[in-house]
């Protein structure tokens, strides 16, 4: 109960800072839109329109935008040694992990809500055929992605790594999500199937495994 209150306190703190500076969100949104537009232009000669390439391109935008989110939400803590102040609070460090995870998910959800329509329009992608399936596949995948992203952003913050490295680290780890969700969306939008249970199982297993492991490991490795 106390932990929940602390998580919400920290989440509120992060969102308040974001609302005041609008640093992360503005950057992430513009980056996401840019990626979609650049790829749309680059692929225009091929079979870009109407096809499933929209989901692939949206994935690229989610991945890069997400990596930017992880970096930005953790950067708040590295200014003026704020992380040390947080670590001195009488709480399990898992609380810090969960609050950052939620902050990242809020930002990524906003990103998805803004750029998905952009992708739909630019690629003439018919999302209305199965909007719920699309939302649940993307939602479940982004949770797993944020789980490892938040862990490694904490590591990057406590070891003063350069930011670009974060994307290099989290992209290969999240490939199972990309493959599983691509296969799922292909089944749904090309063949009109219902959601494939085994593919969804991969995504859910990814979420469960990495949420648990990250939550445990975060406590061990976070340092000011």
């Amino acid at each position: 109960m106390i932990a929940l209150r602390q998580i919400l306190l920290l989440l509120g703190k992060d969102l308040r800072i974001e609302a005041r500076t609008r640093q992360a969100l503005a950057l992430v949104l513009v980056l996401g839109i840019l990626i979609v537009v650049v790829l749309a232009l680059g692929l225009q000669g091929g079979n870009a329109r109407g096809g499933l390439s929209a989901t692939a391109i949206l994935w690229v935008a989610y991945l890069f935008g997400g990596a930017m989110c992880f970096e930005k939400t953790m950067a708040v803590e590295t200014h003026d040694g704020a992380l040390a102040g947080l670590l001195m609070a009488p709480m399990d460090r898992g609380v810090i992990y969960l609050s950052k995870l939620l902050a990242n998910l809020v930002l990524m959800a906003t990103l998805a809500i803004v750029i998905t329509p952009v992708g739909v329009v630019l690629f003439g992608f018919d999302l209305s055929r199965a909007p719920l399936a699309f939302a649940s596949v993307v939602g479940a995948s982004l949770i797993g992605y944020a789980a490892i992203g938040t862990l490694f952003s904490g590591l990057v913050a406590s070891s003063r790594l350069s930011g670009g490295l974060l994307a290099v680290v989290v992209f290969p780890l999240s490939l199972p999500l990309v493959i599983a969700s691509t296969q799922l969306l292909k089944g749904v939008f090309e063949h009109g199937n219902a959601l494939d249970a085994s593919a969804m199982g991969v995504i859910v297993a990814f979420d469960v495994i990495f949420l648990t492991v990250s939550w445990i490991v975060f406590e061990l490795v976070i340092e000011p």
Binding site: K13, R16, I17, R20, T21, V76, H79, D80, G81, A82, A84, G85, M88
Partner: peptide
């Protein structure tokens, strides 16, 4: 324990 660090440990935007 209370800690006053080398840096202020404050959030500059709050």
């Amino acid at each position: 324990i209370g800690l006053v660090g080398h840096e202020t440990m404050l959030y500059r935007d709050l």
